[in-house]
Each structure stands twice: as structure tokens, then as C-alpha cells.
């Protein structure tokens, strides 16, 4: 049994290491793009099959975004980002639970020990993925804030010399923005990685039946974490627009 915090490199392309989580990210992307094309290939007024499913998903997400934003125009503006975060994280998490992911790989020797390097690994069990999403989320929030309030007014939220108290609050705001990055990325990574470790240990100890409830639990965790990530992004975006209104 080998547990590695970092995603394992499988091969390199032009010096760029391609990790097992990157492969799963590509598989998830390919899967999503293909089923999207299938769903919207012959789009009908009365939906059927995949179109019906994706319409339900999109409508549910849009309704959720609407309930937070309270404005359909704003909702439609942020919907693609929120929906993509949710769907990508969810599919990445659930793909990580498929048989063979994390268990099929090549045996290599590292520091004199034989270790299994799996070909595939859940996307969110790689900090590069979660941090990348966190960076995108936080940058989007800042950009929306600047576009809503204006650069200088928005900057005054972090750098404010009007009073010592405001200066201190500004510093705290700056720290909170950095903390968002850390909390976003480590929450998702921690939950999914912990789930993988839990399942690995369970499979190692009792391979049959016993891991099933834990797998179901991980399906739930995968959904909840995707929801939490997208909802937090949405709420931060809402806060950025609300501040603009005041």
C-alpha cells in the first residue's frame, strides 16, 4: 500500500510532466464535451434523453444561482463559471471512485521501495487542480469586484490609510483573500484525498462488501464538495456585487 500526497507523473510532453490526475482531468473533459455534443446535437423543444438530463441539471444550477444572485441577468453572467466548476469537480470526484482508478498502474522503485504508480487519480486529489480552481475563483471574484466598483475603490478595501482601524481591516481583508485560496484548495483536496486514503485502507483491510458504504459515502462527499466549491464561489461573487451596490 502506497499513499502519495502528490499526483504521480506518468509521462512528459515537451518537458511538462503529465500526472495521473491530469489524465483523469482530460478524461473528464473529453467525457463532458462528448456527452454535451450528444445532448445538444439534435436539440428539441420537447427534450428527451441526455438533453432532458442536462436541461434538468442546468435548470437546477441556474435556479440555485438565481436564488443567491436574485437577478436573472447576473445569474446568466455567472452561470457558466459556477456550472463548470460544479460539473468538472463532480465528474472528477466520481471518476476517482471507478474501479481501476488508483489501483491499476505500474510498479516503480522509489528510494529503494517498490511503489505502485497508478495511471489514474481523482482530479481533486491533486493540489494543482484544486489550487488552480481556487486561483480562478478568487481572481474572478476580484475582477468582478473591480468591474463593479472600480479599481481604486476596490483597492481601498485592502489598502486604506484613512484611519488605523481601516488600515488594519484592509490588512485583514487582504489576508482573508489569501485564506480563501488556501481554504478553497485544501478543503476540496483534503476531503477527496482523505476519501481516497480511506477507501484504499478499507480495500486493503477488508476487500469485499465492507468498503461499499464508504464508497457510497464518497459519492456523497464528491457531490457535496463540488457543491461547496461552486456555492462558495457564487457567494463571494455575490458579495463582490453587493459591495458595489453600497
Amino acid at each position: 500500500m502506497n499513499i502519495s500526497v502528490a499526483a504521480e507523473k506518468i509521462f512528459s510532453v515537451l518537458g511538462l510532466p503529465i500526472t495521473n490526475s491530469m489524465l483523469v482531468a482530460w478524461i473528464a473533459m473529453g467525457f463532458l464535451v462528448i456527452i454535451s455534443l450528444v445532448a445538444t446535437h439534435k436539440i428539441r423543444l420537447v427534450p428527451r434523453g441526455l438533453q432532458n438530463f442536462f436541461e434538468s441539471v442546468c435548470d437546477a444550477i441556474l435556479t440555485l444561482v438565481d436564488s443567491v444572485m436574485g437577478d436573472r441577468k447576473q445569474s446568466l453572467r455567472f452561470f457558466p463559471l459556477i456550472a463548470t466548476i460544479f460539473i468538472f469537480v463532480l465528474v472528477g470526484n466520481w471518476l476517482g471512485l471507478l474501479p481501476g482508478v488508483g489501483s491499476v498502474g505500474i510498479r516503480e522503485y522509489h528510494e529503494g521501495r517498490e511503489v505502485l504508480v497508478p495511471f489514474l487519480r481523482s482530479t481533486a486529489a491533486d493540489l494543482n487542480f484544486t489550487l488552480a480552481l481556487a486561483v480562478i475563483s478568487v481572481i474572478t471574484v476580484q475582477v468582478v469586484g473591480i468591474l463593479s466598483v472600480g479599481f481604486f475603490k476596490y483597492a481601498s478595501k485592502f489598502i486604506n490609510f484613512s484611519s488605523p482601524l481601516n488600515f488594519f481591516v484592509g490588512v485583514l481583508e487582504l489576508i482573508s483573500e489569501v485564506a480563501k485560496l488556501i481554504s478553497f484548495s485544501f478543503r476540496l483536496f483534503g476531503n477527496i484525498f482523505a476519501g481516497e486514503v480511506l477507501l484504499t485502507v478499507m480495500f486493503f483491510l477488508v476487500p469485499y462488501v465492507v468498503p461499499l458504504p464508504f464508497m457510497m459515502f464518497e459519492v456523497f462527499v464528491g457531490f457535496i464538495q463540488a457543491m461547496v466549491f461552486s456555492m462558495l464561489t457564487l457567494v463571494f461573487l455575490k458579495i463582490a456585487t453587493i459591495e458595489a451596490q453600497h
Binding site: M22, A25, L127, A132, L133
Partner: peptide
């Protein structure tokens, strides 16, 4: 922790 700026950019690009 496995954080690599190139991988981070690649994942952001993927997204």
C-alpha cells in the same frame, strides 16, 4: 505537496 506551477497553469488551462 506536489504543487508545480506548470501543472497548476495546465490545470487552469484545462478548466
Amino acid at each position: 505537496l506536489g504543487i508545480d506551477v506548470r501543472l497548476l497553469i495546465a490545470q487552469a488551462l484545462n478548466f
